[in-house]
Simulated scan of single mutants.
Amino acid sequence: MRLSTSLTYAGDPRAAADEVASWERAGLDIVWVSEAYGFDAPTIMGYLGARTERVQIGSSILPLFSRTPALLAQTAAGLDAVSGGRAILGLGASGPQVIEGWHGVPYDRPVARTREIIEICRAAWRREILQHDGIYQLPLPGGLGKPLKMLTHPVRDRIPIYIAALGESNVRLTAALAEGWLPFLYVPEKAADVWGSALSAGLARRSPDMPPLEVVAGGLLAIGDDVTGLRDLARPLIALYVGGVGARSRNFYHDLVARYGYEAEADKIQELYLAGRKDEAAAAVPAELLERTSLVGTASYVRDRLQAFAESGVTVLNVTPVGDSARLLAQVRELMTA
């Protein structure tokens, strides 16, 4: 497995770049830059490209609805150029609250949009004249637009596209068309039960010219003899996603945790969170879910978790270190190669 981690939404980007340089020296392979409704990710990614030498730099994620497909292609090509071919275009649908509340764009047809954006981006990187007839109309019918191709020459004509997907249709599309898959709240022991059929169906349609699908998953990381209590640090985040990211009737993370076998717990977390009782919602997150979505424990325990993630198909271990990030990344890198 390769090793990755993510930058948080907040903080000083310049100080974060110093950290990423130290993580690179510790053996990090990929750094992911998030974008919700704080700083935009590409600006930070471009700065990281100038401050690092080897690590790949990926967006996790750029929302499908916030940019046109052509702009997504331009952005990825520009990042790939300034980083010397180290960009990863991570895409995802986000959710109705952010897309409609922050961007003011209707949240509709996310899976179909994903497919069309992949097609248009790859055509743009090949410097083909963009003509598309679907949700995205290129050129726009009845107007003054003309078919165009990218002015500049991308460093690569096939920049890797990773998709954040949880639902069956989106996972199936990701397995068929994308270079990588970014699941969230990944439980390796349950992955085959929840996603196995969708992955198999998508992989059956995957072109033989495509590389093997990369699977990026992991969780909180802490290594030591008395660290298991640190798993509780994930409670507020899991409660936020299961309880508050999305409406009561449409929350992908709630549905995922329910599919893992925690249906009653997911309902309780959502009920408490939406009632404003966030601390109680966090307390309701099952201890077993915290354990299975993390790598927190002794070195031998973390080694066992590494094996579980690898055996489930994970190819990129994505961790959130608690403590000295560079030291922990070096430790887990050593465990991965032992």
Rank of each mutant, 00 (worst) to 15 (best):
M1T: 06
L3H: 07
S4E: 00
A10Q: 11
D12C: 08
A17V: 06
D18H: 12
A21G: 06
S22H: 12
W23P: 10
A26N: 10
G27A: 09
V31K: 05
S34W: 02
Y37H: 11
Y37F: 14
D40Y: 08
M45G: 00
L62Y: 01
P69Y: 01
L72T: 04
A73K: 00
A76T: 05
A77G: 04
A81K: 11
V82T: 01
R86H: 05
I88M: 04
L89K: 01
G92T: 02
S94H: 04
I99H: 08
W102E: 09
W102G: 01
H103P: 06
P106V: 00
R115L: 09
C121P: 07
A124P: 07
W125G: 06
Y136M: 09
L138T: 04
L138H: 08
L140M: 15
L140K: 15
G143H: 13
L144D: 14
L144F: 13
G145W: 10
G145E: 14
M150N: 06
M150L: 15
L151D: 12
P154A: 09
R156V: 02
P160N: 06
A165V: 05
V171E: 03
G180D: 03
F184M: 13
L185S: 13
P188W: 01
A191D: 10
A192W: 06
D193T: 12
V194T: 05
M210Y: 01
P211K: 03
P211L: 03
A217Q: 03
G218K: 04
D225G: 15
D226Y: 07
L230T: 09
R231T: 11
R231A: 10
A239K: 04
A239I: 06
Y241V: 12
V242W: 12
R248C: 00
S249P: 00
S249V: 11
R250Q: 15
H254T: 02
L256S: 02
L256E: 03
A258M: 08
E271K: 12
Y273K: 07
L274N: 10
E280R: 05
E291L: 15
E291V: 14
R292S: 14
Y301K: 11
R303S: 14
F309T: 01
V314L: 09
T315M: 03
T315I: 05
L317Q: 07
V319L: 08
G323K: 08
D324C: 07
L329R: 12
V332G: 13
L335Y: 07
L335P: 08
M336T: 10
T337R: 15
T337P: 00
A338V: 09
